[in-house]
Computed example of a mutant assay.
Amino acid sequence: MTRRSDLADAAIETIAAAGMRGLTHRAVDRSAGLPEGSTSYYFRTRQALLQAVVERLAELITAEIPALPVTDLDAAAEAITTIIEIGATTGRSRHLARYELILEAVRRPELRAALTASWAVVQEAVAEQLAALGLADPRRRAVDLLALLDGLLFDAIAGTGDRDLAGTGLRATVQALLTAVTRPDPASRA
């Protein structure tokens, strides 16, 4: 890994622990265990640091997607379940930071643009998987599937905890969402 990636990872942990207000160059230096000024050497502005965080998050999330099998919906549901379980446990900081960034982007157009561009990479990777399954309109279906799964993950991380996300409960929910998104459109039958 490079120093820039290490600093982006430390910034992700900082955002997850302290929110957007807690994200400072000094806080990232402390989180990374580096001398004061290290982060600002690599990322002169807060926007440059945020851009690095957004790109790193997309890189980490996209790296999980190739593990999805493309030949069978049941196997895909199993792989997606595993990804969500990881996202809600060992990957929790990563997704919590991403949700913080999404909320901040409501007020910051430059951050929204960066998030939109990076998330398009994730959407394209999922669309390729859905296309390999032979689904019509894989791009739209990828957008829908990611929105549904993201809501499920958000609920697991920040929700009320009412949902059974252990083992078979999560697997059944993912299977239902995947089935709904991959079902042929009623309009296309006409």
Rank of each mutant, 00 (worst) to 15 (best):
A125G: 13
D162F: 08
G134S: 00
A166Q: 00
D144G: 11
E100A: 06
A105K: 02
L111I: 04
E104Q: 10
I157R: 01
T116P: 11
A136I: 09
L165A: 00
A147P: 06
G91W: 03
A125M: 12
G159R: 02
L145Q: 14
L148N: 02
Q123D: 15
T82K: 01
L96V: 12
L148F: 13
R140G: 11
I157M: 08
G159Q: 14
L146D: 05
L165V: 00
G151P: 03
R98P: 09
I102G: 04
H95S: 08
G87A: 03
E110H: 13
G134A: 02
L96Y: 07
Q129M: 15
G159K: 12
L133Q: 03
E100W: 12
G87I: 00
I83T: 07
E124D: 14
I157H: 01
D144P: 11
A120F: 01
T90P: 13
G91V: 06
A105M: 08
A113M: 14
A136Y: 09
A131Q: 06
A131P: 01
L111C: 03
A117F: 04
A156G: 06
R107N: 15
G134L: 01
L153K: 10
R139D: 13
E104S: 09
G167E: 13
G87W: 01
T116Y: 11
A132V: 06
A158E: 08
T82D: 10
I102H: 05
T160S: 11
A97Q: 00
G161A: 10
L115S: 08
E128T: 06
A156M: 04
V143Y: 11
E104C: 06
R94G: 10
A147W: 09
S93T: 14
A136C: 06
G134R: 03
Q123I: 05
Y99A: 10
V122M: 07
L149S: 05
Q123V: 08
E104H: 09
E128M: 10
I102T: 06
A132F: 07
L133D: 09
A125C: 07
A166S: 07
I102D: 05
D155R: 11
G161W: 13
I86H: 02
R98C: 04
R108C: 12
Y99V: 13
Q123Y: 10
E124R: 11
I84F: 12
T160D: 10
L149Y: 05
V121N: 04
V122S: 10
A166N: 02
A132G: 15
L130G: 09
V126L: 04
I84C: 03
A97I: 02
L145E: 05
Y99M: 15
G161T: 08
P138F: 05
L146I: 08
I157N: 10
R98Q: 15
D144V: 13
L153G: 11
L145Y: 04
L153Q: 13
A105E: 00
R112A: 03
A120Y: 01
